[in-house]
Design a protein around this nucleic acid. Structure first.
Lengths: 238, 238
DNA sequence: CGCTGTATTGACCTCCTTCAAATGCGGTGG
DNA sequence: CCACCGCATTTGAAGGAGGTCAATACAGCG
């Protein structure tokens, strides 16, 4: 049930069989429809939420109504591991597709982290990877232009989804609309549309029916100068 | 000596007098010249670095030579609290002005966090605030245009520096060049220049001799829709 | 088979970039 | 105190990436 999480954490920390069992079934799950709010800005959720299936996003809405998506959450990603420390949520979380979400009582998490050093490290590792992704997104927005931005995002998701056990070597389910993509990259949906078309024309991607395929992964990576090191998902030689 | 850190942490967690003493003098300090590297990309530093005075930045350089600054580090900010978990640095850290940096042996940090729950929480809180700042920067780059971006950055620094005990109610030392600013915001230095001029023309800021003054803080905040909640520096009513 | 949301297109506009040159300024040495 | 150097700031002109607005086409679905 929690396999996307366990799978992902395995890339950062060596968990024992017992650790895996402890993580294997905590709390209850909830189904969430596409476009439904999971956690609202300002909330102080009692439980920690974990995405088990589907896509969700962190976002902020400005006073003028513009929305920026600050993270895409895929299976194995936590929504709000931080809220216990920080107090209220300074942003919202919404499902982009139908989602299954686990609700872990805060006490369970606290108990785990107090008694199991390796699990604590694994969770900390996960939050640091989230931060590293955020940094790379900043680079993406600041220094690359639309074509490379999109390509880079597609490459990132390929790696992240593989780590969660989703999709295959050259494609994955992709429920985001062009408006969603625009809000991720900080550009217009009109411009996303035109940029996608040109990527398609160059046969760098095939995006159809809520699924993305990448005919030549190496070519796409080269196109946007993608280096997966920041994801910390490849165990390095010590 | 460590007062900027202690001051800052006090905004997030209630430290006891004893906790403060424990944080008050750890490890040795090092002077770093402006434009000197503090930690290089790919390093695996043995010590944890903490800025005590001056400004530094996190950055990444792309293959084509373009540089994106992903964080400004001011007194009280850690450079690499995360590296112990994550392995190698996936980015570099450079001094933007002459800096004093404390080098805390990793063992000291580990020891502190193993034995003092409140300090652990405080350090964790600090990394979460860093992450929250990163998210807001993403919003800034994605949704605001240059004028508001700059204004927002200036407002953020006013609050952060005050929390570290630097500057006064309406201004602070500001050693960044226009090129640095450009690399923070993901725009050209030429455009930074023209944008600064127009902010000056509207008397929203006074930037001269490496010092920034804000004649009317409320007006500047309103101008860029600044809400300091994301900094988690104001203790909220429970 | 109509409804609703998403994708696509066109025309026009503007913010920001690019390139290149000029000006200003703080520090240093004479 | 002045001349000079290197760096940062400023300016101009021209071009391009991306934005805006609004209409149209399309697709899934009850």
């Amino acid at each position: 049930m929690f396999s996307p999480l366990i799978r992902k954490l395995g890339h950062g920390v060596d968990l024992t069989e017992a650790d895996r069992d402890r993580l294997a079934c905590l709390g209850r799950t909830r189904q969430i429809g596409a476009r439904q709010e999971i956690i609202a800005q300002g909330d102080r959720p009692e439980d920690v939420h974990l995405v088990l299936s589907g896509f969700a996003c962190r976002y902020k809405v400005l006073r003028d109504g513009k929305r920026q998506i600050m993270a895409l959450l895929v299976p194995g990603d936590f929504c709000d591991l931080h809220v216990a420390i920080l107090g209220a949520m300074d942003h919202g979380i919404t499902a982009l597709s139908p989602c299954t979400v686990a609700e872990l009582p805060r006490a369970t998490i606290l108990n785990l982290t107090e008694n199991h050093l390796r699990i604590t490290r694994a969770l900390w590792w996960a939050t640091l990877v989230d931060e590293a992704i955020l940094r790379e997104w900043l680079v993406n927005m600041g220094q690359r232009e639309a074509h490379q931005q999109l390509a880079h995002l597609f490459c990132e998701l390929l790696v992240r989804l593989k780590a969660a056990g989703i999709g295959d070597a050259d494609g994955y389910p992709f429920p985001l609309t062009q408006v969603d993509l625009a809000e991720v990259l900080g550009i217009t949906s009109v411009h996303v549309n035109r940029t996608l078309q040109s990527l398609r024309d160059e046969n760098l991607i095939v995006l159809r029916g809520r699924r993305l395929n990448i005919p030549d992964v190496e070519r796409l990576k080269a196109y946007c100068d993608f280096d997966p090191a920041y994801l910390h998902l490849v165990k390095r030689v010590e």
